[in-house]
Each structure stands twice: as structure tokens, then as C-alpha cells.
Design a protein around this nucleic acid. Structure first.
Lengths: 100, 100
DNA sequence: CGTGTAAGGAATTCTGACACG
DNA sequence: CGTGTAAGGAATTCTGACACG
């Protein structure tokens, strides 16, 4: 975990960093696009990665995409990534086996 | 400016990250060891670099150093760094001049 | 000098709801 | 569906001060 992934930023500052209203930021969480942590008291805590994600979400919203479409798109990309990694592992294994 | 230098963390979270009380953190600011920014409303905002600095300060305090000593020490190291950079620039210039 | 604490107030955040479209 | 807003309350932070050592 680098600094980028540490959940330490409160929503007001995230709002400033992204230019999005707090309302929007909370709504995108409701739609499962973003997953802040919580303090003991219940205040949301975001990472810089979350901030980047929010900017990306904002761009897609501007392009007329709907929240559920954005969610699906992210799932697809996650799946692609998994497949890619699985293949890579397979090739590494094959290469390793050839050596014996 | 990388993420490390962005002042985005509130004092409560800094307290958790460093293990220092908010009182101590504010006191080290009073003694000019740390320089948070402020929100419009007046709440302090720290960077990850500040968090690292605070941990370093805490270690020196544990070793019995006093705040003014820590401040002096940091000034000295800053000066050393400046001298080093000045010398480096001088050498680079010399090397460049030899080429013509 | 360095730090804890209680005090009162202000800034920040939270949730659930209503509104509009 | 996506977002603004007013509402009431709770969590967070701020300052200046007193205390102890």
C-alpha cells in the first residue's frame, strides 16, 4: 500500500480536489462506484486513488454514461485484467516446466 | 508536487497515523516544526510528508531533544543541502566550460 | 518546557427526505 | 436517474486557559 491507496481524505477536501459536489460523491458511493472507509464516528475517508477514480467517473458522466454502465465497465476491465494475469501465469509456468 | 506533498489530511487522522496526540501535533506547529495549511474554515491540513516529519520529531523528542534543538538541527541540514547543491552546480559548470 | 484536560463555539459531516425532471 | 437543498443532529476541530512539573 502506497500513499495513493491510504484512505485519509475527508469528503470536503475530496470535493475541492475533484470539483464534484459532496452530494455527487456520496451518490456515486450509493451506486457502488466508490468505496470510502469510515472513521469511528462515521465520517468518510478517501484515498488519492479514489480521487482519481472520481475524476474518471465524472468524465464518463459528462459523456452521458449512466452509473450502472460505469459500474459494468469497471467490472469488465477487472475481468480482462484477471484473464491477462492468468495467462501470464500460465506462460511463466510453461517456461519453467521446459527447464526441467 | 506528488501526493506526498499535498496537504489533505485532517489532524484527527494524522493523530491516528502517527500515534501522537492532537495536542502534541498542534504544539509542534507552535514551535515551528511543522507547517500545515488551513481550510477556509480554519481546520488544519497536513501532507504525508508532514506525517513522516512528525514521526521523526517524535523520535527525537523521545531521545530527550528539545523542540528548539530539533528546529536548529533541521535548519542546519537545510543549509548543508544548499551548500551541497551549490557545489554540484559549480562542478557541472566547470565540466561544461572545459568542453568549449 | 511539554503535555493533558475541560470549556465553549464554530466548521464539518451524516442521514433521510422532498423536489425536479 | 442524477442532483440540489433545507433540517436536525452528531462528530470533528479550534482557541485560550489552567494545571503540573
Amino acid at each position: 500500500m502506497s500513499y495513493k491507496d491510504k484512505k485519509v481524505i475527508t469528503i470536503g477536501i475530496v470535493s475541492e480536489l475533484t470539483g464534484l459536489s459532496e452530494r455527487k460523491i456520496r451518490y456515486y458511493e450509493e451506486r457502488k462506484l466508490i468505496f470510502p472507509e469510515r472513521s469511528k464516528g462515521g465520517t468518510r475517508k478517501y484515498s488519492f486513488l479514489d480521487v482519481e477514480r472520481l475524476v474518471d467517473i465524472a468524465n464518463k458522466m459528462e459523456d452521458g454514461m449512466q452509473t450502472f454502465e460505469i459500474r459494468k465497465m469497471e467490472q469488465k476491465q477487472l475481468k480482462k485484467k484477471e484473464v491477462r494475469e492468468k495467462m501470464l501465469r500460465g506462460q511463466l509456468n510453461a517456461a519453467f516446466n521446459m527447464r526441467k
